[in-house]
Design a protein around this nucleic acid. Structure first.
Lengths: 263, 263
DNA sequence: GAACGGCACATGTATGGACAAGTTCCCGAA
DNA sequence: TTCGGGAACTTGTCCATACATGTGCCGTTC
């Protein structure tokens, strides 16, 4: 093994938390026990625990053993990356209707974002995503062929493409998200069942591989009554980010959406 | 002093960077030198440097001395918290017109967010903020009296309230931001010079003191052609957040805004 | 003059020990 | 029964040391 000991310990600890061996809410074994178990000194053990603490996976305090945090905290990255996992985390049933999946030539905007030449083939996906059956988001994704071709062997109406792509070895590593607002166009309005021109919360996302090459460019448009973005920050230090459920429900009861008056 | 040594070192190092004693781009003194200077062992020194590295203030590598990073990296928090500092960081002239500053009874929404009883007095501020003279954002802020009273001794049309409040000792420490989209109401439309109903990017923010008590509740509405939010994240680890300039300018030339057709 | 090798020096990693400070829990005293 | 004190345990902090590993520089050699 070439990995430093404290990184091995960090990965092992994270694995134990993800598998539930260290259940959330329960205290982690003491440093002394971990030292004995792995035959290491306190240094690497503490370094590994500090890394997990920096990721908000465990909490600690003097005299108090570290405690595994609620899963929602440690899953914030996955729930932020994947609509399906986010929906499940807030106790809603995620749904998706694939309007279109196609392989076509990249337009100028997509080509620019994916760093390919205009005219190169890309895999484009247009899906309507819903929460408990109510239309919530329109997703326009464009993949480079390397990442998008596996999607033709996948029922894109059945579940999380994020999880699927990871499972077939696509190297989704990091992403850049740009968040703004946009008026619903005719397609958005029709799919979401809202009037044309309604304000939508837009997240444009470029997902990169470990090497930093773009794999996906997406334009996701949320009904702002259903999904917001939340950010915490402090004066010193950096800020995590999470997508959260809107604080104000769209209507007193989940009435039928106003049937759109458009094409 | 009761602060642990490594925290004292961290603060001292940060101070030296902020004052320019350790200029950006230049390498930091070696660990051995710092140990000698402060009479400490490598442990606390490394702990302090690791903290700064976690804040992206310095970079490091094996064999290479740590280097002070460009200031923009360490200022991302300030530029995110303060419209004025953000505008300056992108080379635009920030402007603000104070439409109203008042002390009045808290309404139900404000009272709930600030954790005060409805009817308690709060200081409310309504400002139009601009970039290079062009209206960009409508800011509705509500302060608890402790934090808002100093504002009556401040020309709120002259500069950064964030900087001013910090300078008079108001303990602005952390914030929670909720980002969504909303249609411009009559006031928004009139101030921003856009049609009523236009989509706006809204950031609702609650700023907390060190003890976690709310000090400010704000509702900021941006023209999405002028300001977006950007987030980077990776599969493992947390994501910082920054407010960035929109990639697509609003119009070929900054034409005069369509004078709003409302009260 | 250019390429190679080696030597300081830097940080990364790991060990072992020691003390301080906080928490928990049990047991004894009131 | 209740309250208090203290012991045991845990994490936080700090020190001294040692070795591994990568960087940069300088001198030698071809």
């Amino acid at each position: 093994m070439k990995l430093p000991l404290h990184q091995q310990l960090r990965d092992e600890f994270r694995h134990r938390i993800e598998t539930g061996e260290w259940a959330e809410g329960t205290p982690v074994p003491s440093e002394a026990q971990l030292c004995r178990e792995f035959g290491a000194s306190r240094g690497p053990v503490r370094q590994a625990l500090a890394a997990l603490r920096a990721e908000q996976v465990i909490t600690g305090g003097r005299g108090k053993p570290p405690v595994v945090r609620a899963a929602v905290a440690s899953q914030s990255v996955e729930t932020f990356m994947s609509f399906t996992e986010w929906a499940e985390s807030i106790g809603k049933e995620p749904g998706q209707r694939t309007v279109e999946i196609a392989r076509r030539e990249a337009g100028p905007l997509v080509a620019e974002q994916l760093l390919v030449s205009a005219g190169e083939p890309v895999v484009s996906l247009l899906r309507l995503r819903s929460l408990d059956g109510e239309p919530a988001m329109v997703e326009r994704s464009h993949f480079v062929p390397e990442a998008g071709n596996p999607l033709f062997d996948f029922d894109t109406s059945s579940g999380s493409t994020f999880r699927f792509l990871l499972s077939v070895g696509v190297d989704l590593h990091s992403a850049r998200h740009i968040i703004d607002a946009v008026a619903a166009d005719a397609v958005d309005a029709s799919l979401l069942g809202i009037p044309e021109g309604s304000p939508l919360l837009r997240e444009r996302r470029v997902t990169f591989s470990t090497e930093g090459t773009p794999l996906e460019f997406a334009d996701d448009r949320y009904r702002p009554e259903l999904a917001n973005f939340m950010v915490h920050n402090t004066l010193h230090g950096r800020a995590p980010v999470a997508r959260v459920q809107s604080t104000r429900p769209p209507a007193p009861a989940a009435g039928q959406p106003s049937a759109g008056e458009n094409p």
